[in-house]
């Protein structure tokens, strides 16, 4: 990827972060930390990789995306809004009584959402079902899913970890948002899911390690996934929870806490600074 495109994507991802924080701030509820950590990969998938059309969100041949870590819906909504599935202004209605932007993704209400998620462990299994459907229909659409690293503690993730290689679902690519933190703290202290790479390898997956905030690295990972035949791919993305809002970075406390007015203004100011710098470098 050329540097200019990477910069453009970084600008979009920071706008996604702003939309996510605006929603959480307005609702005074939601999950900022994990939303900020997946903003880059969501932006990369929706703007560079996935065959989707905001004007025809139900196109049966589209690529699919399942946010298995459904609590980071603010980032997904921000991305879908930036991509044109619905107005960006709607992001601030997140979690409010008359909004279609539910606390966790709802496929029946939100254009562009391919599966309702929120209960951890289920989304990745649904993604496996979608990938299987493509195989049964001999269609070439691909299925992408993002899981949290804490989510790997859910047993049914490993049921799907057996299923996808068994049925050779090489059209399935999952991203593990490896920010190292879950609600109660360090994932290795709460219930250690490591070594994540060796586990997926042992289950028969093509495993790729990538930097969640480096578009060239994400591009390499997706290309390796597309090139791999006969195996699903697990991209283990080293990420920073709270990415690009300095006081939220690497803080488990920001998993499910809304910023107050001062904190929100600080966060938006920091993101605006980053966007200005990026725009200046174009």
């Amino acid at each position: 990827m050329d540097a200019k495109r990477a910069t453009e994507l970084a600008i979009i991802a920071n706008r996604v972060r702003e939309h996510a924080l605006e929603g959480v701030y307005t609702a005074q509820a939601g999950h900022p930390g994990g939303s900020l950590s997946i903003a880059d990969v969501l932006t990369y998938l929706y703007f560079e990789v996935m065959n989707v059309d905001p004007k025809n969100p139900q196109n049966p041949d589209r690529d699919r995306f399942v946010l298995s870590k459904g609590h980071t819906a603010p980032a997904l909504y921000g991305t879908l809004a930036e991509r044109g599935f619905f107005p960006v202004e709607d992001c601030k209605t997140f979690r409010s009584i008359n909004s279609y932007l539910q606390g966790h993704p709802d496929m029946k209400k939100v254009p562009g959402v391919d599966m309702s998620t929120g209960s951890l462990g289920q989304g990745v299994c649904v993604a496996g079902g979608m990938a299987l459907a493509a195989k049964l229909d001999r269609k070439d659409y691909r299925v992408y899913s993002i899981l949290g690293d804490g989510e790997l503690e859910e047993g049914q993730v490993w049921e799907q970890a057996m299923f996808a290689p068994h049925y050779k679902l090489d059209n399935l690519t999952i991203f593990i948002d490896n920010n190292g933190l879950q609600i109660d703290g360090d994932i290795t202290k709460v219930m250690n899911p490591t070594p994540i790479d060796k586990k997926f390898e042992a289950f028969g997956w093509n495993v790729v390690i990538a930097d969640a905030h480096d578009y060239n690295d994400l591009e390499r990972a997706v290309n390796e996934a597309k090139a791999c035949k006969g195996k699903p791919t697990a991209v283990i993305m080293k990420s920073v929870k709270g990415k690009n809002v300095s006081f939220m970075e690497n803080q488990a406390a920001w998993h499910g806490t809304a910023p107050n007015e001062e904190q929100y203004n600080m966060a938006i100011a920091e993101l605006e600074d980053r966007i200005s710098e990026l725009e200046a470098s174009l």
Partner: peptide
């Protein structure tokens, strides 16, 4: 959940 995924794709 696999059944659910299949159903989202028209199965």
């Amino acid at each position: 959940c696999v059944a659910a995924g299949l159903a989202t794709c028209g199965k």
